[in-house]
Each structure stands twice: as C-alpha cells, then as structure tokens.
Amino acid sequence: MAPSDERELVARANQGDAAAFEELYRRHRDWVVGLAWRFVGNRDDALDVLQETFAALFDRFPGFALTSSLRGYLYPVVKHRCISLLRKRRRVVAIDEARTARGDLAGELAWQPDPPGEFAEIISALPAEQREVVRLRFALDLKLEEIAQALAIPTGTVKSRLHNALKVLLKVV
C-alpha cells in the first residue's frame, strides 16, 4: 500500500495542483536516476531516463490511480526506458526471455554490480526471475506488494521466487 501522504499527493496532482507535481518529482528524483544508473551505467543516459520517466508519469494525470507505491509503479517505467535506450545502442544482455514484460524483449537488463563478496557469485547463479526479485527486495528495499506491481506478477509468485532464492542464499553463505 502506498503511504497515505503519497496517495494525497497523487490526489492533488489529479486536481492540477502544480506543487503536488513538483513534490512527486522531488521525492522520487534521486531514486529514479539512481535506479536508471544501475541499469545503464552512465550518468548522461540515466539523466535521459529520468526526464522520460517523469514525462511519462505526468502524462498519466488526470486520472492516475495509485494501486501500490509510486516506486512500484516507477520501476517498470524506468526499466523499460532503459531497455529502449540500450537497445538502440545494442548493449542489452540477453539472458532470459521467459515471462518478461514488453520492453524486456532482449531479456534481463545488465545490472551494475551486486554487493561485493560472497553474495555476488551466489546471486549471479540464481535464475533470472529469482535474481530480479532478490534485487528488488534487498537492494531496492521493496515490499512484496511493490515487487508484485513492479514485475506485474501475482504476490504469490513473488513469495515463491523469494522463498526459492532465500533457500539458496541462506544455505550457501
């Protein structure tokens, strides 16, 4: 569930309140550009994605309905913009094409280094769909419902993937 003040901001933006639009940007700017950098690995591209992501978000108003958190909504938008940008430069790493959303045509995006040390190797050995859930959970600190929204999959599927990943992670370390 989105925090009530986030819902309040969205409600105000739906009424054309410019201050609410600006606040949405200020609150999520650093997260969006940081996430974009994770995917594309350079500042210029990350800034392009930042602009495109907020342009897309603003276009959703009026009538934007927040079903989970704004981060849960923004994650796929950022990801798809990054894929589109990388596709143009043919830098997308094709790993797994199963059960991916439109824009993930070339499979999983390259993700800037996972935590160093013992976990890096274990995470890289996980199946792609488990790896993405682990990153959203631990690196981005998202809740189950937010991950479900971000990946457009049922919450039960998130649980299942997380459960399987944890069994591997906690057994090996």
Partner: peptide, 17 residues
Amino acid sequence: LERDARALAMPLAAIEV
C-alpha cells in the same frame, strides 16, 4: 537473516542531477 539482508543491501548511487 537480518545480518545477511544488511550485507545484500546496496543503496542506489547518488547521481548529481
């Protein structure tokens, strides 16, 4: 698990806008 979660946490880089 809490220890491991801290090790897995990777704050996003601060990108200057």
